[in-house]
Structures are given as C-alpha cells and as structure tokens.
C-alpha cells in the first residue's frame, strides 16, 4: 500500500510534466491539424535555457531560491516562446496550403536541427544541476518503507495547476482565446469575421512553447540532469498523452498526461524498467488504433 501510494505520487508528478507538453501538441493539432513533431525538442531547448539561466543567475549573485526560480521561469518561457515562434515561421507557415504530409516532414527536419544545434552549442555530455529545491515531508511509514512527498514534487504539481489555471482563463476568457477557439473550429470563417489567422496560429505556437518551457524547467529541477536527446522520448510520450486525452482538447491533454505518467511509473515499479518506453509506445499504438478520438475528443469526420 505504501509502495503503491509512493508510486502514485511519483506518477502524478511525472504526469504533470507530460500534461504541460501535451497541451502544446493538442493546441497545434487543433488549430492547423498537424503533428508538431519538433515540440518535444522545443521542450528540450526550454530545459537548456532554464539550466543556463540558473547558472547565469548564480554567476551574477542571485542565489535566493524563490527569486531565482521565478526569474528563470520568466526567462525560459520568453526565450523558448521565441523558439516556438521561429519554428512556426520558418518551417510551417510557408507550407500551410501544401499537401498534408509536408509540414510533418519539415517538423522532423526541425526536430533534427534543434537536437543537433544544442548538441553542437552545448556539447553532447549530460548536464547536471545541483539540487535547488530539497527536502520533503514524510507522510507515514509502513514497516521500513516510508511514503515521502518531496518539496520538488509539491512545487511541480502546484506550478502545473497554477499555470494550467492561468492558461484556462486565457483560452476561455480573453480575446486571444476566443480567436484561438474560432480558428480551431473554422479557419476560413474566423478570417472572414476579422480574426487574424496567421497571428493567432503564431500565438498558439508561442503559448505551446511557453508551456513546454515550464515543463522543461520542472523536468530539470526534478531529474537534475538533462541532455540534448531528452526531447525525443518525452515528446512522443506527451504526444501519446495528447492523443489519449482526445487530440484538440486541452483538459484532455492534462488528463492524458496524468494517465501516461501513472502508466509509466507503475510499469517501472511493478514490471521491468527497461521496457517502460515500450509500454508508452505500445500505449500510443493501442490508443490510436482503438480509440482514435481519445477520452475527451470529438470524432473527426473525414470529408471528400
């Protein structure tokens, strides 16, 4: 029971990170109907920006943890958002009216570019960061096994809830959110009603990248080590989460993230850790084949 509870806590933490990334996939898919294959690598770039910002702040003497965290969060979100914007502007916008698989192919190209750019600029070795948020609470213990919620896990879940809340308000209560939802339903009609479609799509990428940067920062704090290749596997798992929750649905992405995080954690805890990626990938195949609309998605009608 205690072991189960501990895994549940770990799974929710991991799931929060996946959920944040999954939103980026689901929003882009909702609005332009493409899989932004490079989104996982935007997350990776966000994690690197956060790491470098931490080191830079330490160098100039800002070491108070809450202030440093806040500053890093802002820097990472802004700069990663610029990356997201650039990727859309360079690789996707010119192909908006092209055949369906064209943007997917440039997305794969962009993903290769981002990975190798970071590998060249920062080196291929794993980058460790000394623990910044330490400590935790012991909930209870059963025999020699104690269930611990660490402060970093609390921070991750709290940040995710906070960011998600702000994001929900943005989508449902603001002008931008309305334009975004309009473009999702019918791009042509939205344009006719005076919505700047190009700008809205750009902003979707900016928002997705911002959330990916939050996920990158949290990932960095949680695992304490990153490298240029983390974006690939995490990206696919987050995409699985987005599909699981119903692609195009934002609450679905969060729910899917939690479920994928839990599946992965429990698989590692009770079966074999070597095959945890196989579990996630098989999950993706099973979900896409048997429930292509996901948990909270709308069925997509294919028209001729």
């Amino acid at each position: 029971m205690a072991y189960f509870l501990q895994q549940l806590i770990n799974g929710v933490t991991l799931g929060s990170i996946y959920g944040l990334i999954a939103i980026g996939y689901t929003m882009v898919y909702g609005i332009i109907g493409m899989i932004n294959f490079a989104h996982g690598d935007v997350f990776m770039v966000g994690a690197f920006i956060a790491l470098i910002a931490f080191l830079a702040l330490t160098t100039i003497g800002i070491t108070a943890v809450p202030l440093a965290l806040l500053l890093v969060l802002i820097i990472a979100m802004v700069l990663t958002a610029v990356w997201g914007w650039t990727v859309e502007r360079v690789a996707y916008r010119p192909l908006r009216e092209s055949f369906r698989l064209a943007p997917l192919i440039t997305a794969i190209g962009m993903s290769i570019v981002l990975q190798n750019f970071i590998q060249i600029a920062q080196g291929a070795r794993v980058k460790p960061l000394q623990p910044i948020v330490t400590g935790g609470y012991e909930l209870f213990h059963q025999g020699s096994f104690s269930v611990i919620v660490s402060n970093i896990q609390i921070l991750i879940v709290a940040t995710t809830v906070l960011v998600m809340g702000a994001f929900w308000l943005l989508i449902n209560r603001t002008e931008l959110g309305r334009a975004q939802r309009a473009c999702e339903q019918d791009r042509l009609m939205a344009a006719l009603s005076g919505v700047d479609v190009d700008r809205t799509i750009s902003l979707t990428f900016v928002l997705g990248a911002g959330l990916a940067a939050v996920a990158g920062l949290l990932y960095l704090l949680y695992y304490g080590v990153i490298d240029f290749f983390i974006g690939f596997v995490v990206g696919i798992k987050a995409f699985t989460a987005a599909v699981f929750g119903g692609i195009g649905s934002i609450p679905g992405a969060m729910l899917g993230g939690l479920i994928i995080g839990l599946i992965e954690t429990f698989w590692s805890a009770y079966f074999t850790i070597e095959y945890k990626d196989v579990a996630a990938f098989s999950m993706l195949a099973i979900v896409l084949i048997f429930f292509p609309t996901g948990l909270l998605g709308r069925p997509e009608v294919e028209k001729v």
Binding site: L104, L284, A285, I289
Partner: peptide, 24 residues
Amino acid sequence: PVLRLRGDYLAIVTLAFGEIVRII
C-alpha cells in the same frame, strides 16, 4: 494494426513500432 489510421497518425504509430523493435 495501422490500416485504419490516417496519414499523420499512421506516421507516428510506425515511428512507435520502429522504436519498440529497437528497444527489444
């Protein structure tokens, strides 16, 4: 298994299969 899938979903599932084979 991927027969029913449409263009980009099919791409992602084949990617997953490729990775599964490699991990095994």
